[in-house]
Design a protein around this nucleic acid. Structure first.
Lengths: 225, 225
DNA sequence: GCACGCACTTACACTACGTGCAAGTTTGCA
DNA sequence: TGCAAACTTGCACGTAGTGTAAGTGCGTGC
């Protein structure tokens, strides 16, 4: 407490004590959940275990998350929300596929992807995570849909609901596909070479989509480095 | 019954009494679940309610399905399994997107789509169904992946895991998009005109995918009849 | 036709989930 | 300092889902 005045923190909209407490509790919960996932494996711990590890009551856990899955999926949500943020930063007149490519590549960074990679490797072999993870991706799809609809509002021939829905869904599917292939190949490897491969996979996936999956007409898309 | 011998039913591998009983119970459960969904709305009935309505014990319900959601999602599974069957019937040298188009259009038939349409309209406004429905679509995606991998085994430039994963995911996404747009527009309408529109949406969605979402280069894709 | 074995159903018990409620505690504000 | 709102907590309750052991119906070999 160096400053006697109101704002020791130069952040916008001065985060109040309450907000900081809530954020800390939230973080403590996800940390505890991830720790238990590491030590006991998926499905082998209860909400009470998480609450104890986080130093809160069982009831309070449910004030933050609806289930253990939801607590863990918040990691995926964090990553994908970040991706959406990147997507919104792209110029509005850029083609959607290029924007998606850029947003995803920006996220292929150790800092952002490390928790996701660990979560993925810890839950890969068990279908216990699938529920909420699928929901997280679908939530992201809905947000891509919103962004795409805003952008294409004035584009002739693309104002169709069908076009926007299909595009958003396909972008998400290709992003998922790239990540899945990467995890299958590299596991929890976060080395620069591995991340470079992820970036290439993401770019290639979007290129495939843009080329309509025509293998004959995609010069630099399907071959590895 | 023209034959006095063992098989009055010309089906393969004579379904035994046990199998018939199981199938009947399974059907009774899904019927009961759908009925309760109609009368009470999503989330307003329990497993015990379903079991009572189906004339079985609560425990037996769990011998067939893991949750109420799963019981209802079996309808979606039935539809999508049917679609996969149609897909497998297509000639192996046909382009995947055309096969998918054909398989989906073959399913745009009142008989096959009626239960799906009702389920969809009953659960549309509530997210209670999303879990298992997303899983059903993802299960279908995995099967499309398998079919695609088998087909493209010898195709040069397409042997990539990435290509097959991205293709399968995108096909599913576009199929979902077409159905979603159709339900949003038509609700539970199963008239020939409505089904014709669904077929058109499915065809258009696959065409969009095949054209790489290039609006400029898709002559007959995005306009309604 | 009869009895044995297996598949299936059922009741019971138990753990864990998720939520409403009515306290108690902390924070923001006058 | 004192009050109000936000937040945490313990308690109670209904429901989900599973292990187990006993009962019932079906297929099979004798």
């Amino acid at each position: 407490m160096p400053v006697p005045f109101s704002s020791p923190d130069p952040e916008p909209a001065v985060p109040s004590r309450r907000e900081l407490n809530k954020a800390a509790t939230r973080q403590a919960i996800t940390d505890a959940a991830l720790g238990l996932l590491r030590s006991k494996g998926p499905g082998n711990f209860t909400v009470e275990d998480i609450a104890d590890a986080a130093g809160i009551s069982r009831r309070t856990f449910f004030n933050y998350f609806g289930s253990t899955d939801a607590a863990l999926a918040s990691i995926v949500h964090g990553f994908l929300d970040n991706a959406i943020q990147q997507l919104r930063l792209r110029p509005a007149d850029e083609p959607m596929l290029e924007s998606a490519q850029a947003a995803l590549v920006a996220l292929a960074d150790p800092k952002a992807i490390a928790p996701l990679a660990e979560l993925f490797t810890l839950t890969q072999q068990s279908p216990l995570m699938s529920h909420t993870e699928l929901e997280a991706w679908d939530h992201c799809r809905a947000q891509v849909f919103t962004v795409a609809r805003e952008r294409l509002a004035g584009t002739p021939g693309a104002q169709d609901e069908l076009y926007v829905h299909a595009l958003a869904g396909s972008i998400i599917s290709c992003g998922k596909a790239a990540m899945e292939v990467w995890f299958n190949r590299r596991g929890p490897d976060l080395s620069p070479a591995s991340l470079a491969e992820l970036r290439k996979l993401l770019i290639d996936a979007m290129a495939l989509l843009g080329a309509g999956f025509n293998t004959t007409a995609s010069p630099s898309a399907t071959r590895s480095s």
